[in-house]
Write a protein that binds this DNA or RNA. Structure first.
Lengths: 156, 156
DNA sequence: GTCATATAGTTAAACAAGTGAACTATTAAA
DNA sequence: TTTAATAGTTCACTTGTTTAACTATATGAC
């Protein structure tokens, strides 16, 4: 009984998550003139959201090693979308910021995503959206706690 | 007004999707004795679900090129989780099936996932789960149609 | 029946993302 | 001041991906 629902949930979640991911990938590809990978977009998003950030902060946010961030950052710098700036108080630290071009590309991506999601929203009842948001908020809290617990051992 | 909701939806969805993905990754890593990547797990899942499959079918299901499937398959064969079997009617075709070992590892993964999701379920109202399922079903249909439209040009 | 074409799958080169370990600087602490 | 810790990079290796060239088999036009 309960097993059936679990299975259904997993299956349906996986299919939607796959479809959303693919859709987002297609959105980031080509249409804007610049190709952005999922990770590159997430990096721009983090910096836009939290302001100038360090590799360490990005690594913690994405739950990957710092060397992985270095690689992504190098590619974004090649694309002239972000810049490095050394902290003068602590000269080990490097702050990463968006260039004007980075801001521009990021904005174009956001517009695309928002337009897409906006078109979805019209097909749902306000009540459905409300409940969706609440469920996800709850889910997020549960997951965050669990992931923190699990990755604590693996963290450096 | 509507803009605000779109933004919230995107943000919340992205955070949950990230958390779920990381959580699943951690689940597949080590705990079972065998490491499975997301793609390897999805491949086992597809074969388990649809029975002996071809590279072409997997490539279509995952929306990647066939050469990407070849690489994943080779690694799963190295791990002795699947086998190739030539079709005798059409000798171009190769069917991929799970080995007993593959079945065993896959089952262990599923059990882990179901246990996890089962533990989530208890924290939600039946009504919430019902609506969640319905919303996702609706979302899936919308996305499937859109992705089909978008990738039609890109398909080979 | 034979020749052109389509289909199934592999291979190889190149790129993006990731890990792990060794490394350079710089700062903090004993 | 010598030792620790921290921030970041580099390098070798793995996985997943695309593109393009390739092999082998099947289909179809004539």
């Amino acid at each position: 009984m309960d097993n059936k629902i679990t299975e259904k949930l997993v299956e349906r979640y996986e299919r939607v998550q796959f479809a959303v991911h693919k859709k987002a990938q297609l959105l980031m590809r080509g249409e804007i003139g610049e190709e952005l990978t999922t990770e590159q977009h997430a990096t721009l998003r983090h910096i836009k959201h939290f302001g100038p950030s360090t590799s360490t902060q990005l690594a913690e946010a994405f739950l990957v090693k710092k060397s992985a961030i270095t690689a992504i950052i190098n590619r974004l710098i090649d694309k002239k979308m972000i810049t490095r700036r050394r902290d003068q108080n602590d000269r080990r630290v490097i702050y990463l910021s968006l260039t004007d071009y980075g801001e521009e590309i990021y904005k174009q991506c956001e517009d695309k995503i928002h337009a897409l999601v906006g078109s979805f929203i019209t097909q749902f009842e306000p009540k459905e959206i409300e409940l969706f948001l609440n469920t996800f908020e709850k889910l997020e809290k549960i997951l965050d706690k669990q992931i923190l617990d699990m990755s604590e051992g693996a963290e450096k």
